[in-house]
Amino acid sequence: MNPAPTNENPFAGDSSGIQQRETAARWGLRIGSYVVVLITLAIMLHIFIKGAPVAFQSKWPFVNTKFLTELPATLHVIEDRQGNHIETDVNGSDAVKKKLGDNFRAEKTISYSGGGILGPIVGTALLVIVSVGVALFLGVACAIYLSEYARHGKFLETVRLAILNLAGVPSVVFGLFGLGAFVLTAPTFVDVPAERSVFSIPLGFTTLSFEGWDTCVLSGGFTLAFVILPVIITASEQCLQAVPQGFRETSMALGATRWQTIRYSVLPFATPGILTSSILGIARAAGETAPIMFTAALAFKDKLPWQKDLPPLPADASIFAHWEQSVERFLGIFTESVQALPYHIYTLAAKIPQNEYAERAQYGSVFVFLVLVASLAASSVMLRKRLRAKYRW
């Protein structure tokens, strides 16, 4: 006797408790992702609402050029007897008070809240350039060795464990490391070693003295390079390993050496991914505060790095003398202490009494900072897309 026909679909999904738990887990993960996106959008919207009016204006050229092209300064707020507030700098304060005369009521000064943020922008750019340049060179070299040359064994495991531990070190520890390794101990060529020199090696025409680089762009850049090094090493190694093994075998079968194979058959196809790691490195290096507090950053500086005072040359100085002074001025950029946007924002938020003027400077600095980091990241993404379109397999 044939069984009675049924309308149930034998291939239908399971509607039991397992399927219900699977659906609940999927929705839980989806909601968690939405919450992360909403929090990110809320933060960005809050910064845009507070900071955009500081960086932009309603009149041509619609950008607050004063905020972007002047150095930070002390803001003087002068109040008259009618309750009106006049904002000026230290040079205009006396003139405004003299003009008000008996109508003058009170004056309030807010440090670092006047002028602009040109100095912190320049300092941040210099620190990022040095740190990413050093970290990319060391990171890609380490990734090539780990991926292409190193043999599997205890040594390789030890190196990878060291990289993981380096990624977990707090940034303030990197700052103390940079203070000891670069500010106080790094080698430099001098005529006469300083008293704090750990030891020196006479070279005849000069002396190699381990007395450090002081607080400067080089010290801060090298310290930040070690902060972002684990990210670049890990991402670069994964990109190298993603290149098909057949590329290497074909190249070496045609008679290429190991390095030629890496240089022409592996690195070009891994470059887009390596640029991704540089994007992460730029964002991390630009946003660090603790390492540069010990090694490079100042709360206030009234000159840009290339405005270093040098003795004037005589009227009959040769072209070589002018060229030598130009080189000295250029190299002096990297041996000067600088302001940096993260430290500038920290100073405004933690060291200055909170009021509407300090808050305006804070949010304006944060807004410009995010725009700069986003612009650098967008440029790297566009370059990565072009390289991916060029190198496809």
Results as ranks from 00 to 15, higher is better:
L341A: 00
V371I: 15
L310I: 03
G332K: 03
I333R: 11
A374M: 15
A350L: 12
A377C: 14
T347F: 12
G332I: 01
W323Y: 09
W323K: 06
T335P: 05
I345V: 13
Y363C: 07
W306G: 10
P342H: 02
G364N: 09
F330G: 01
L376F: 15
S375V: 12
E359V: 08
S365K: 07
E324F: 05
Q362F: 13
Q307H: 13
L341G: 01
L376D: 09
I319C: 03
L331E: 06
Q325W: 00
R360H: 02
P305I: 07
W323N: 12
A315V: 14
Q307S: 10
Q362W: 11
P342Q: 09
P312E: 13
Y357Q: 04
S326N: 05
I333E: 03
A374S: 15
S337M: 02
Q362T: 14
A340W: 07
D316P: 05
H322I: 02
E356H: 08
K351N: 10
F369V: 10
A361M: 15
P305Q: 12
R360Q: 14
Y343D: 00
E324K: 10
V338D: 05
A374R: 14
I352K: 13
G332P: 01
Y343Q: 03
V366W: 03
Y346I: 01
P312I: 10
L310F: 11
